[in-house]
Design a binder for these strands. Structure first.
Lengths: 140, 140
DNA sequence: CTATTTGCAAAACATTTGCACTTGC
DNA sequence: GCAAGTGCAAATGTTTTGCAAATAG
């Protein structure tokens, strides 16, 4: 692996006060700059290429602590949890037909009528519908 | 049960082209005008009072078909699915401390930067944080 | 009468837990 | 060396499925 990159991921772990392990580095490497929103199972299947004996419990561990430290965020859509490696403010579009998840840019300055009485720490916005891809296929 | 109300629920089922069964009527009755966001298990436990032999599969069936026909909507928060019997446009606030779910009014005219290329059919907005109740308790 | 719905039991699936072993620091 | 992380297997909890019996229309 590129030494510079490896270092970048190590720094990220250090910043989150996490020990640097090969498994954790690999998770960061696999999904760095990725637009995917993998489930724990998907992450596990990809990690197994490099660590054939890696346990699913470990993957859940890693993803849980990453989410806790803000390295990733969790998405609750459907039965399985998905994870988002892009923690910048954005919404998601989920296609009801093909299930694909798209990132959607949202103006951060949009001020919702925030519930004033509560302390809001996080916002999750999901759009559901039919994606462009499926719409195009439909027309044929 | 009040005959007028029973009729109201029956009408709602008919409008959705669903057969009128006592179990379905009871679900509607239990959560009519309710601010709760029950899980399938919670609905099941309440239904058992009137139908001691009701199966969980039946409850899942009812909730699934209700959601399909737009009588209720589903909320994906955490591991368990929750159901919302108020299908008018609103957001939710979920307390990270106590887990309570609050309804939040949202200006329907707020036009998000909707993803234009896709066809949006539904929007779900979740705020997470600490609720007023927990904040007050904290101050003491 | 017939298609739907229900209840039950088992299966499937996602996630968590406990514990012994290993590793990062 | 020691706390933290990993791998494994079993447990837990939620949702789905297959099927026979009951029921709405």
């Amino acid at each position: 692996m590129n030494k510079k990159l490896l270092n970048k991921y190590a720094e990220r772990l250090k910043a989150a006060e996490l020990k640097i392990t090969p498994q954790r580095l690999e998770v960061l490497r696999l999904y760095d700059n990725s637009m995917l929103h993998p489930t724990a199972d998907e992450v596990w299947r990809r990690l197994r290429r490099k660590f054939p004996s890696i346990s699913k419990a470990t993957v859940y561990n890693i993803l849980e602590i990453f989410a806790e430290r803000g390295i990733i965020s969790t998405m609750d859509i459907g039965k399985e949890a998905h994870f988002d490696f892009d923690t910048s403010f954005h919404a998601h579009f989920i296609c009801n037909r093909c299930g694909k998840i798209y990132d959607v840019k949202i103006d951060e300055n949009l001020h919702f009528c925030l519930p004033e009485e509560h302390r809001v720490e996080n916002i999750k916005i999901y759009f559901y519908g039919i994606c462009k891809n499926c719409l195009d296929r439909e027309k044929k």
